[in-house]
Structures are given as C-alpha cells and as structure tokens.
C-alpha cells in the first residue's frame, strides 16, 4: 500500500471542499473494497477523506411516501430496517445475498454503489486492464471470463458490476442523491452506472469530487411485491453469476407496472426495459413472463465461456416473476 494522508470531514461541504483541494483523493466510507484495492495497489490515493462519520446516517420517511437511506448506513442496518423489509423487500433480500455478516456491518450504502468490479484482471496490476490502465487492453476478452458480462460489453471491457444492492435499487426505481461543487442532484440508480464503451475507466456518472449523500426509494414502488434471487458458485458469500430483482404491480388481472433488473451480467445493473414493456398491459401468466424475458435475452451476446448465464438468468427471472404474480393477483 502507498502512504496516504488522512482527513476526517466534519460536514458534507467540508468533504467536497477537501476533495477539490486534493487531486486524486478518495472518500472513505466503510473501506471494505477501497482498502482492499489499496493493498493491491489498484488504488493509490494520496489522500483519504473519511466520510463515514458524516451526518448521512439513518433511514427517514419522505413526505411523499418514499424512504431516504443515508449514504453511511451500513448494509446490515439497511437490510434489517423494518420499513425496508416491509415496503421494499427486494432491497433487503439483495443486501442479505451479498458479502458476509462482517462485511455488511461495515460496508455503506454509498460505498456499495461505488464498489469496483471483481474482474481478476482489474485486481491484478501485472495484467492488462482498460478500466485500471486505459489503453492497456482487456485481458478478460479472450482470457478468463466465465464470470463476465453477457449484455452491453465492449471490446474494451467485459467486466460486471458486483453489487447486489444496486440491482434491487435499479428495479425499484430508486435514485442516487449526490452533492458536489455544483450543488445537489439526483440520478436514477438504473442510469448511475455506465456501460463500458470506449471509457471503461468510468464506472458511473458521478462527477469528480461528487459525494453520494443517500439513496431515495420512491413512493411508487413502496409496498409492491418485490423479490431478489441470486445464483452463485457456492450457497453463500460469493458474487452473483447472475441475479434478478423484480417488482410487479398487478391490478384487475393485468400488469400495471414491472421493474426488472439483472445483476452479474453487465457493467451495470441491467434494467430489462424490453421485458417490462412487453409485460405492462398483459395478464401475469407464465407465457407472458417467458415471452417478455426471452425478448430481453435476445439482446444478450455471451463471450466464449459464459453463455450459460443466459439460460441461468432466464430461470431466475421466470422464478421471481411467477413468485410475485400470485401474491399480487390474489385479493388482499
């Protein structure tokens, strides 16, 4: 690890000002990914700005019916929060499907969104990686890429985003709240992470020095049936080979709203817009789910060794959707 200076920010404004004053600085939340990457010297920040004690904690009710979850809320606390469990079950399930008890006790909401890919080429500074070292090439494209993307990848990068939480947030139409020198703004989680294109070094739409202050869960998906299912190489404590988060609203025998996102298959949570469009207005039948999911999967372009992810994702998506459908179809 390279030596670094450490600053503890007393306020959001102070943190952002400190970042502007220290080029190359990184914000420190729980550090469960950042410190690991610093040990690997993938990250070599000259300055860490500790934002873990900023007043960005807790989960608050919003006047219009949604929830605000602070950037420094630990993953375990967010997963256990009664309002999250009751109104946005997919989010709680996704958080609990990720990492270990120890890591969830430390990892923060903001840091979870900003965690980096676990692509082995990215994590090994002796290997080519366009995300870590733009222009050095992609080792995974023709190398070991069983765990990599099947949607939206480019010849510059085939990495996936590793978060479970972000997949649920994307399906639930949550927004990321950001604060920077240009002020406050919010971005849909589904549009926060980028596809790699020619610039895989940019994971997200965050601007230099911007700080995540929280996430906003909308009233529109509150209380709707939602769920998360994840497939991995072992029963627990592993990243997703593929995962699916879905929220489904059915009224009068017709799907009124569908939010579906795939995890572990793209550089960002893959919002299945084609499937959603096909479902809205249709009856929530098995045939309709198959038709919709297959429409989405038609856009998949697997690599040499990860074609298995397409039928895997299909099975997960159909399971989650059929699980949600009867619960909505039957009158309360």
């Amino acid at each position: 690890m390279k030596p670094f200076a450490y600053l503890r920010a007393g306020s959001v404004e102070e943190a952002v000002d400190a970042h502007a004053a220290h080029p190359g600085a990184r914000y420190l939340g729980g550090g469960t990914n950042l410190i690991d990457l610093m040990k690997l010297e993938v990250e070599r920040p000259p300055v860490l700005i500790d934002v873990s004690r900023l007043p960005l904690e807790g989960v608050r009710e919003l006047p219009e019916g949604g929830l605000w979850a602070g950037a420094t809320v630990r993953n375990s606390d967010l997963a256990a929060h009664p309002a999250v469990r009751d109104r946005y079950p997919a989010l709680s399930e996704a958080l609990l499907a990720g990492a270990s008890g120890q890591l969830r006790n430390v990892a923060t909401t903001g840091g979870n969104l900003l965690q980096r890919t676990r692509c082995p080429y990215f994590q090994d500074v002796t290997k080519p990686c366009n995300k870590r070292e733009p222009g050095s090439g992609c080792g995974a494209l023709e190398g070991v890429h069983r765990d990599h993307a099947v949607f939206g990848h480019s010849r510059h990068c085939v990495a996936t985003h590793p978060s479970d939480m972000a997949v649920a947030l994307a399906a639930l139409d949550a927004r990321v709240e950001l604060y920077g020198t240009e002020g406050r703004r919010t971005v849909p989680v589904a549009e926060f992470h980028r596809l790699p294109g020619e610039h895989p070094e940019r994971d997200t739409e965050i601007r230099p020095g911007e700080l995540i202050t929280g996430v906003v869960l909308p009233a529109a998906t509150a209380g709707l049936p939602s769920a998360y299912r994840k497939a991995r190489d072992r029963a627990s404590y592993a990243f997703a080979l593929a995962s699916v988060a879905a929220v489904l609203e059915v009224a009068d025998g017709v799907v009124r709203r569908a939010g579906i996102a795939f995890g572990g298959v793209a550089h960002r949570p893959w919002r299945a817009r084609r499937a959603e469009e096909a479902l809205v207005g249709a009856a929530p039948t098995e045939d309709a789910f198959e038709h919709a999911v297959d429409l989405e999967l038609a856009a998949a372009s697997p690599l040499r060794d990860n074609a298995f992810k397409v039928p895997l994702t299909r099975g997960l998506a159909l399971d989650v959707l059929t699980r949600l459908a009867p619960r909505t179809a039957s009158p309360a």
Binding site: Y6, R8, I35, V106
Partner: peptide, 10 residues
Amino acid sequence: VNSCLLPAVA
C-alpha cells in the same frame, strides 16, 4: 467486522 480492512486511524 474484518479487522484486516479497517484503517486504525478511522
């Protein structure tokens, strides 16, 4: 917590 990932200064 995993003590290997926590900077003591924090």
